[in-house]
């Protein structure tokens, strides 16, 4: 079976600086890939390759191929369709300067969904999935930017789900959320795994342990090791990986 996402010897440079060095990995469909690694190891760059938002960085140059369902994303004509197939959540919450409702309705509207009832149902579903519905259901038309940081982050998650992606990329989503909500969202992710493939970049090693089917360890732009989460955490091949997951790194 073709893997859902596949990196074929991907190298990314920002000017002269190498951000990803010859990365090869694959993610099977409907699974969770956890990516762990210290700061500046290329985790976010890896995510940006999947939906090609790396295009927006003028200095970036990519070699190799990223395949989504066997298709090279860098050869795709319709990059907007690709981005709609990939949901993306970045570490800092971004509430767009419009109502909560419009925040979530943004992508469906751009994709041509204008049916009132369809939108209402979709928005409720996304907000429920992001564990935000109960807190905002009575004020859907107040400003999204006036929510608290944690709520805005869940709004960002709801927005990422609003275009019904088949891949969900999360870049340290829990950085601005309290532990209780984090646990709730983690449950949601396990639920979402039945519908989509999830790539989870996290600084919380235990979060990867809890959620991921596969875990990849990146260090210094290189893929040190990838394997079943159990293997990575119990008996990794690489000594560095062992030290990182047990907290003795550095």
């Amino acid at each position: 079976m073709t893997p859902h996402i596949q990196f074929d010897n991907v190298t990314v440079r920002y000017g002269d600086q190498i951000a990803l060095d010859n990365i090869a990995l694959s993610v099977p469909e409907k699974s969770i890939l956890g990516i762990i690694g210290p700061a500046n190891s290329g985790k976010t760059t890896l995510l940006k390759c999947i939906n090609r938002t790396i295009d927006f960085i003028d200095t970036a140059r990519v070699d190799g191929a990223v395949l989504v369902r066997g298709e090279n994303v860098f050869r795709m004509r319709n990059v907007y369709a690709l981005r709609r197939r990939v949901g993306m959540v970045f570490p800092l919450p971004v509430g767009l300067p419009m109502s909560i409702y419009e925040n979530v309705a943004y992508a469906p509207r751009r994709a041509g969904l204008h049916d009132r009832f369809g939108l209402d149902a979709l928005i409720e579903k996304c907000l429920r999935q992001a564990v935000l519905w109960d807190e905002v259901k009575d004020r859907l038309h107040s400003l999204g930017t006036k929510l608290s940081g944690g709520q805005q982050q869940r709004l960002t998650l709801a927005r990422a789900l609003s275009h019904q992606p088949e891949i969900l990329c999360l870049d340290e989503f829990s950085i601005a959320i309290d532990p209780v909500t984090t646990m709730k969202i983690e449950d949601v992710l396990l639920e979402l795994k039945k519908e989509m493939t999830i790539v989870l970049v996290t600084n919380l090693v235990q979060q990867a342990h809890r959620l991921a089917d596969q875990t990849a360890f990146l260090n210094d732009s290189k893929l040190v090791e990838i394997g079943d989460t159990k293997t990575i955490f119990m008996e990794p091949e690489n000594k560095m990986t062992y030290e990182y997951v047990t907290g003795g790194f550095g």
Binding site: N51, T53, F56, Y80, A81, L82, R83, R84, V86, M88, F90, L92, V94, L96, P97, Y106, A107, R110, A111, T156, R159, A160, S162, H163
Partner: peptide, 13 residues
């Protein structure tokens, strides 16, 4: 800039 990035990530041109 983050507003723009959020939109681009949702597939907006």
């Amino acid at each position: 800039m983050s507003f723009r990035e959020a939109c681009w990530n949702m597939g907006a041109s």
